[in-house]
Design a protein around this nucleic acid. Structure first.
Lengths: 153, 153
DNA sequence: CCGATTTACATGCATTTGCATCTATCGGTG
DNA sequence: CACCGATAGATGCAAATGCATGTAAATCGG
């Protein structure tokens, strides 16, 4: 069975990651050059998006930080900027005097929705011609499994 | 057969991308916090790595830029730093007076190999427990297909 | 062959990022 | 309760990044 990509498991893993990473770069490059991200950087949009998906509406800063590829201090400042622009609202965490809770303002929710609609169209325009629906489902399954394994410690 | 993730093709594409992106973030976060990237930022290593994979040894700056998620000006300065550290060498492109060719120095090649070895171990430690070999091959195939479709215009 | 447009890369400058560190709170222990 | 280490988040500061623009060389149209 000697697979195509390198005989060793280590090499296979490395090539898999390399390919995943390059695909992400290629897609992201296209997405962030689109008009959807004129108003907001990708990382900033990502924060609004994550907040919009949060059931309670409120999210802790440190939980947010798990989703985003940013240092804690950079996220702290990014949120500060979003607050200055009136897109998010801060609140001291009720149970934990150290913590900060975040929530979208109405303006933030509107902007997220607006950018989100355009963003989703851009994504679809890139992904749909590239992979069949069943390939997309498989890619979704594999990346979810990978993420679960990696971040679930 | 109304698939699991959202009925619409647009929604499936969006969820697939979201999952791919989050998986990339989760893995990258782990990788870049490891000791392998004490000496060199990930983007800097990536440039050395790409150069090390180049058959002729020499690579144009603009070709490099396709692989990396960096603006042209940032890459220009990143390369400038690498040159100052003696890791890469520049040369005016022979056929094109505007172009610049890049090559690893011996020191650059050594450093890439050293970091690369550690990096590959880290990758394997994350990927191998997460996905079976055949899942990795499938993920490799799908991401290659995606990348080909997206960057091949 | 000449002027106009495009491409490749560099650079000035403002913004963003990360590291190290600081403050404040939380949790556990004696 | 008083202490000590760990955790959440903010901040000073240097470094990295991106945007707009500059320069030079290639390419195109007539």
């Amino acid at each position: 069975m000697a697979s195509q990509p390198g005989g060793s498991p280590v090499r296979l893993a490395a090539e898999t990651w390399e390919s995943l990473f390059r695909a992400q770069v290629a897609v992201m490059r296209r997405l962030q050059s689109g008009p959807a991200f004129k108003a907001l950087a990708v990382n900033e949009y990502d924060v609004l998006f994550t907040l919009s998906r949060c059931p309670s509406g409120w999210l802790r800063l440190n939980e947010l930080n798990d989703n985003v590829l940013l240092s804690q201090s950079s996220l702290s400042r990014l949120v500060e900027r979003l607050e200055k622009r009136g897109l998010v609202e801060r609140m001291p965490a009720p149970q934990d005097g150290r913590g900060v809770l975040l929530k979208l303002t109405d303006a933030g929710r509107d902007l997220q929705k607006q950018i989100g609609r355009e963003h989703v169209r851009d994504i679809s325009a890139l992904i749909t011609p590239a992979l069949t629906a069943s390939e997309q489902r498989e890619l979704l399954r594999l990346t979810e499994k990978l993420r679960g394994s990696v971040s679930g410690h």
